[in-house]
C-alpha cells in the first residue's frame, strides 16, 4: 500500500463559483481522510463514519450542482453535457455506497484501486466537468445581470 500525498485544491482547481469551490474543498478533505483512514487500517467505525460522511456530503454537493445544472442547462447540447455530468455523480455515489456496504460486511476493500478511483474521479470531475458547469453558470449569471 503506497502512500500518496493528500489532494490539494490549488488555484487551477477553483471554478470561480464560491459555493462549489467551498464544497469541493470539503469533499477533498473527506476523501483525504477516508484515504488516510483506509491506508492506516484505522478503526472500522472511524472509517465507516468517514465514508458515511463522504456519502452524505456527496449527496449534498451533487444536489447543489445538479440543481444548478437543471437551472442553467437549457440547450440540447448543454442538457446532454448535464446528463454526462450527472452520470459521473452517480458513478461516484455507487462506488461510495459499495465501499460502505463492504465496510458493513467487512469485506475486502482494494484500497489502492478505490483511492485511485476517488482521486482520479475528483480530479477529472472538478477540473473538467465542474469547470465547464461553472463556466456555464458564470456566463448565464453575467448575461442575467
Amino acid at each position: 500500500m503506497k502512500y500518496t500525498r493528500p489532494l490539494v485544491l490549488d488555484e487551477s482547481a477553483l471554478t470561480g463559483v464560491e459555493e462549489i469551490d467551498h464544497q469541493h474543498q470539503h469533499l477533498l478533505n473527506l476523501i483525504n481522510h477516508t484515504h488516510l483512514s483506509l491506508l492506516k487500517n484505522g478503526s472500522p467505525v472511524n472509517t465507516r463514519s468517514l465514508v458515511r460522511e463522504l456519502l452524505g456530503y456527496s449527496i449534498y454537493h451533487f444536489n447543489t450542482e445538479e440543481s444548478l445544472l437543471k437551472q442553467y442547462a437549457t440547450t440540447e447540447e448543454e442538457k446532454a453535457e448535464a446528463d454526462k455530468h450527472i452520470s459521473q455523480h452517480r458513478l461516484f455515489s455507487q462506488r461510495v455506497v459499495l465501499l460502505q456496504e463492504k465496510l458493513v460486511r467487512r469485506q475486502f476493500i482494494d484500497t489502492d484501486e478505490l483511492l485511485s478511483f476517488l482521486t482520479g474521479w475528483i480530479n477529472d470531475h472538478v477540473l473538467l466537468t465542474d469547470k465547464a458547469l461553472a463556466g456555464l453558470i458564470l456566463d448565464r449569471q453575467k448575461s442575467e445581470s
Binding site: 465514508v51 458515511r52 456519502l55 452524505g56 449527496i59 451533487f62 445538479e66 455523480h89 455506497v97
Partner: peptide, 12 residues
C-alpha cells in the same frame, strides 16, 4: 434532483 436513491445512499 438526484432521481431515485436507494437506501444505502441516504440511510447512513
Amino acid at each position: 434532483v438526484l432521481g431515485t436513491l436507494p437506501p444505502a445512499h441516504f440511510i447512513p
